[in-house]
Amino acid sequence: MSLNRNRLYVRVIIASVVGYVWILLQVTKNNFSNNPFRVCFLKQITNIPCPSCGTTRSVTSIIQGHFLDALYSNPLGYLIFIVLLISPFWILKDLFKKTNTFLQFYIKILTTIKKPKIAFVLIVLVILNWIWNINKGL
């Protein structure tokens, strides 16, 4: 895999910063349900929620301590919360110590989820989550 360590780290850090800013804005605003502005492209056009709709609500619920609400909004929120919590600090540690443990972990995870059996299970989970999202009417 031709993967540049620094390029990956910069990308993840930028994504994390955008994520933190976005979550911070939503937490401080505290009136997400009344907000007429919707970020989801698909939902705005077709009014059908996408597989990841409700993730922002989920992450803000986790921060406020409403863990069941978070699970109900979108279980993907837990994944994003963990990634946002761990990855920037892991990368900073790597940069200071001049190691590449995050890159190795990233490659390991990627090769694991590319295995057909695991990929199939994950695709089914995403589709089930999507169906659940549509039923919930997020």
Binding site: V39, C40, F41, Q44, L76
Partner: peptide, 18 residues
């Protein structure tokens, strides 16, 4: 795959990335 997952779990990067 990594970029795909990134796009999938962020509603297509808030629609902008799409």
């Amino acid at each position: 795959t990594a970029m795909g997952i990134g796009k999938l779990i962020t509603c297509g990067g808030f629609g902008i990335w799409t």
